[in-house]
Design a protein around this nucleic acid. Structure first.
Lengths: 197, 197
DNA sequence: GTGAAGGCCTAAAGGCTATAGGCTGGGCGG
DNA sequence: CCGCCCAGCCTATAGCCTTTAGGCCTTCAC
């Protein structure tokens, strides 16, 4: 009686909430089952194994992130778009720390090939359109953007900024400033920049 | 008989090797004990708990990394120093993936306050001396450097670059180019850069 | 109404961390 | 030289985790 009306997506959604509340590595099949008022093995009807559950959370997170970023970038260009792009990431990491963390691991193919993954890249490229970065350099610029934003958030998360003075806040805005300046003056062909010293 | 001559540092060293060989999360007390030919509980004489063991690996890794970076930066200035700094990090991550991974988590106080931690920051500041970045901006620049380098390596590790075309290699050198250009033309006070659009 | 299927259950195996308590050999004081 | 003590390993055990196997009840289609 009182079947708990489980479905794959209900299980994944609950896992995502748990991740936000208790940290990504508190996500275990046991814990999710407990929250859903069900015995652990029952989850195996809906989810292949733990790995698949975590991948499910990542897919969910990526979709949510893409939506937020899209919203932040829409109708903006240049620096405003860049700021929207970067800050939407940071806001997502702040609001949904567990889901964010789910993205910091090698993901399964389903996640990698997802629509959301494609969209995130497309949005980064859209931001670049407001800057004089040549098409051929777009990949590199997208990767740089991703590296810096993700890297900043990772360092912030593990407390890397907790032991030196100015607040991460200040460095964040300087970081966006720097990325803006960088994209405005994207260094020309490698050869041109060689040996400035 | 045949006491295994365990010591705290021998245990930590073995854990670090295991991390490199089998991935950081293959580091368990069980696995380390197995490798050392000893029963799991025996390790508790040398290591407080799993957490302490992982922190030990991180401390070891940080010291090794600092040494490598110091070596790569010594006697260099400007772009050469920057390139040495960045590439030493990448080389370490490549050569010792497990140890590198041990640094991507919130570390205990012992690690944070270690000599090696201080040195890493000092080396970054040393790199900045070759660039016209004002003292007051050093913290931000150090954080930006750390964010971008760590972020790039993290994305590379989780395969974030595996599904688009040019090799990470190419983007890496463009990234160093970009950081060089950025530091050469570090954006002035925030106010000056406002609303260029 | 009945049979198949879906969805939850219990049971159980095997791996992990961690604590408690026992055995032993080597060094050291008497 | 003898015996004691302790360092350093051990076994036993508890508790939590994942995963598989197999059973039972409910529902729905025919």
């Amino acid at each position: 009686m009182n079947r708990a009306a489980l479905t794959a997506s209900a299980v994944v959604a609950d896992a995502a909430s748990l991740a936000d509340e208790a940290g990504f590595d508190a996500v275990t099949l046991s814990a999710v089952a407990r929250r859903l008022g069900v015995r652990t093995p029952s989850l195996y009807s809906h989810v292949r194994d733990l790995e698949a559950l975590l991948d499910g959370v990542a897919a969910l997170a990526l979709a949510e992130l893409a939506a937020r970023v899209a919203d932040a970038v829409a109708g903006r260009a240049g620096r405003a778009a860049l700021e929207g792009y970067a800050t939407a990431h940071r806001a997502y990491a702040r609001d949904s720390p567990g889901r964010w963390q789910s993205l910091q691991r090698r993901a399964g193919d389903a996640v990698v090939r997802s629509e959301a993954a494609r969209e995130t890249v497309a949005l980064a490229r859209a931001v670049l359109r407001g800057y004089p970065v040549p098409q051929t350099e777009h990949v590199h610029a997208v990767r740089l953007l991703g590296s810096t934003i993700n890297g900043f958030l990772a360092l912030e998360r593990i407390g890397g900024f907790d032991h030196s003075e100015p607040s991460p806040e200040a460095s964040w805005s300087r970081t966006v400033d720097a990325l803006d300046a960088l994209l405005l003056a994207w260094p020309a062909a490698p050869r041109d920049r060689k040996a400035p010293l």
